[in-house]
Amino acid sequence: MLEARFGETLLLKKIVDALKEIISQSTLDCTETGMQLQSMDNSHVSLVALSLQTEGFEKYRCDRNVSLGLDLKSLAKVVKSASGDDAVTLTAADKADKLLLSFESDNKSRTADYELKLLNLDQDHLGIPETNYACIVQMPSSEFARICRDMSMFSESVVISCTKQGIKFSANGDMGSANIKLSDTSKGDITIDVDEPITQSFAGRYLNTFTRATPLSDRVKICLAPDVPLLVEYPIEDYGYIRYYLAPKVDE
């Protein structure tokens, strides 16, 4: 049986918002060490991986591994009906065909229980190899969101170039071009670690979708290496992270 309590529904809302634009259905795998989710988008261009460790939960118990096939739009509807500061407990039996969500207001004066039907999903699980990234950039998540939004006005493709001098985002389209450069700051709000310089091209639409995770974290980590997907990682408090991988565009 699974029993997992989030202190605030707001966090679960943010997690669902960070997932639902990129994947519509996915399996949440629950074990005694926490919850994991991994899914490709429909076009198999990107992959999202969510990890929530037990440390973050107010209460966590999972006696036997449970896989919960979720429809994220439905989950979003249920979560939306609760107040952000409600506590929420997820409960599922060992061979569950439904997930119970129990919301409890601060002073316990209001409780709301929802049963969500689970799906039988047959999902491929992909192995993500350990990668030594050539460039690792950390910046405020709001800055990254702003850059992705501004870039996608100009072109479908965004070129990311990273050198010791800084990281540059470029877009070139019918209406003109845009270049935004960021350099390492002494304040430490932007850090750039470069083993070797790299230039890669990515679909701006996906980068923009990843920034739905911005409310989860003040910081975002962007990792690049030659001939491997881009990694965009948002930490989630004491729980873990949400990671987005995006396959590069290559010259024809």
Binding site: M40, V45, Y245, A247, K249
Partner: peptide, 14 residues
């Protein structure tokens, strides 16, 4: 001209 690659070509099925 660039072409979009698939994420499944980098990460193999387990």
């Amino acid at each position: 001209n660039t072409t979009q690659t698939s994420i499944a070509s980098y990460f193999k099925k387990e």
